[in-house]
Design a protein around this nucleic acid. Structure first.
Lengths: 387, 387
DNA sequence: CTGTTAGCGCCTTCAA
DNA sequence: TTGAAGGCGCTAACAG
């Protein structure tokens, strides 16, 4: 392995000088720089990451925690994996510009067994990015004692760490408003997500807010699903059984998977969506656009979530004293035809934040890059060869 | 930050002893071990990864290179991202059992600009995993000079590095054999992948081999596509234009995306698949099961590819002298109805290797874990607390 | 502009 | 069974 010493010796300078040349910042005489660069090239020197980390007291690595998927088969349930991937790419983009790296850790989602691995992770990175539902709050708090942690796509409320999330509440409100005001729906049925899941709760709150503003509309019933297609199908069947005599004119689902399940149940029962009943989901997963009718839903800016979370984390690493903050990103209404819009409709429109959605003025504006006003390291050339 | 020294001082022992306790291997008196563990717990000591790496001369990190996706919108083109993700999970599984980590690097796929980043990567990891088409051969060779490199899902021939890939040739042969022997198709049209792409070539070879074995069958024409839906559609149109008077009775596509494109063109022209013409793809992407008719195709064991590649890489890191090797994993034939099988068919059957597919006897057998016979580090407890 | 010199936190012989 | 001590490769004062 070629070290800084080898280069220094060969070039007849000190290691400090080589280091300066490698980082291209301090002033070095042009002739010296040239000579050193030649030797670097010739020897094929590449700095050792571990030594750099140790010496700088900064690893320039951030950890990203994923859930291990147990299913080996692709199906619609797994489609949100794509979103995971998209978030990760957002993070990747935000990070590699600055020359930092991304260290992936898979957890099983079983608190006990995950902890040692996550704890060890804190010794290998400068900060951690986590999907809300992946790591339970108490565990999160323990990690956050060691390194900065930013939670992606979670509840804007109850975490010990910074949060970057989408505006589920406003998205849901916009969706239900559309159903009521554009399509004149009045009798809604709600298929909720699992109890205690932040996203589900926010979406429910969004719907309820709209309902309160429209006293002529009623929620004729609801069903608690598990965010899975299967549970959506059960929800649909249950609804048909209980409200068969007086069906709702719209079904609002906590996510797209459940909406697809409901659609299956309705289709099996000979109910035609959207004529007999409108149906909407949330998340904008890919197969939602393929169903018959295509699903109206709400899109989250996954990639942006990743980028913002990354920026926030880097910022906090640079300035640990920062006040904890929640950033809520805007969503988009995706109109297709399951809501009653004409067949062939494919419209995306930005959702304006409702009050209480905690969407700050900063949050929506991509230009307000906190990194720009902080001590955060900016992108730098990996090796300056200016001669 | 709590260091080994802090623990040593607090426990009244030397750092060497603490180190021994942390790794739970050397013999330490039980009472000492107990005391040290208590202090570790109390102080919340977590070893510093960079220092460990530097001291051990091994980082216990492997690099995984991904292509940055430029499109911001999900569509069928992006579905192979899912496979990427799946490969990565395979790698993750293989690696984290052993306590190693995965460092992700995104590249743009533009040789020039990618090189510095990849070169820097070699200083941060012990080995690199790469998708064949992602990094061009010459660049690969340069990286392989520095650290072990394993290429996933590529040509079993021309690389400077180890390769773990799927048996494209046999899969394709099985598919075409099915078309001919089960469904009696005789006049084939081929939609090829891009020139120079290894997968495409292997698949073509598989088809040609079968054709040679069936002199009564003819390849009436072919079209070179780009692996995209768009190019598939063009292929379909071109085929209709050129062979409109005497259509083929089956179209064999280099991948599922192109098959979907062809299907669109055929449907638009009023041709009914599979009655008028059979159609098959390759890869088994998710939307292929959703089309009308559902697509018959070949499935690659992505997750297994990841796992095997990972094992291979770890093995090579442990024993750098190893002979270069290509491992070819078996595929599965996925029978749905676009080939002529009855509607509702969903069958998966293993593909037997054809001669020349370079599928070694070892390769197919998951039990032949090279790690087991080598100096490869086995999983170890992250911290022994046996008292 | 350039060189000297302490470390960074941990592992690992070598002695005791 | 334990301790002492010398690196691992690089960075960053501090001097010149």
């Amino acid at each position: 392995m070629v070290t800084l010493y080898d280069v220094a010796r060969q070039a007849g300078v000190s290691t400090a000088t080589v280091s300066r040349v490698v980082h291209g910042q301090d002033r070095v005489r042009d002739s010296t720089r040239l000579r050193v660069n030649q030797v670097i090239e010739q020897l094929g020197y590449v700095p050792d990451g571990a030594a750099q980390s140790l010496s700088r007291r900064r690893k320039e690595i951030i950890g990203f925690v994923c859930v291990e998927s147990h299913s080996r088969q692709y199906d619609v349930e797994n489609m949100n994996l794509l979103y995971y991937d998209e978030v990760m790419r957002g993070v990747g983009a935000g990070i590699s510009d600055r020359g930092w790296s991304l260290l992936i850790t898979y957890v099983n989602g079983e608190d006990e067994r995950d902890f040692p691995r996550l704890q060890a992770l804190t010794g290998k990175v400068d900060g951690i990015l986590i999907g809300q539902s992946v790591v339970p709050s108490p565990l999160l708090a323990r990690l956050a004692e060691r390194v900065p942690v930013v939670v992606i796509a979670g509840a804007p409320g109850d975490s010990a760490a910074d949060v970057v999330t989408a505006d589920n509440r406003s998205g849901s409100a916009a969706l239900v408003t559309h159903l009521i005001e554009v399509h004149g729906r009045r009798r809604l049925f709600h298929v909720d997500g699992p109890a205690g899941v932040a996203d589900a709760k926010e979406r429910r709150l969004g719907m309820e807010r709209v309902l309160r503003a429209h006293p002529d509309c009623t929620l004729i019933g609801s069903y608690q699903g598990q965010f899975s297609v299967q549970s959506g199908e059960e929800a649909g069947q249950s609804m048909l059984a209980q409200h068969g005599s007086a069906l709702p004119d719209a079904v609002v689902c906590g996510n797209d998977q459940m909406a697809i399940g409901v659609l299956q149940a309705l289709t099996a029962a000979g109910i035609r969506v959207p004529w007999d009943m409108a149906l909407v989901g949330f998340d904008d997963i890919y197969p939602g656009g393929l169903s018959e009718p295509p699903l109206t839903t709400v899109h989250q800016p996954m990639r942006l979530l990743g980028e913002r979370a990354c920026i926030r984390l880097l910022d906090r690493i640079a300035r640990p004293g920062l006040r904890r903050r929640v950033e809520v990103l805007p969503t988009e209404l995706v109109l297709r035809s399951s809501c009653g819009c004409p067949p062939g409709t494919v419209t995306r429109e930005p959702v304006k934040p409702v009050r209480g959605s905690r969407l700050t003025s900063r949050a929506g504006s991509a230009s307000a890059d906190p990194a720009r006003q902080s001590g955060l390291p900016r992108p730098r050339p990996s090796r300056a060869r200016t001669s």
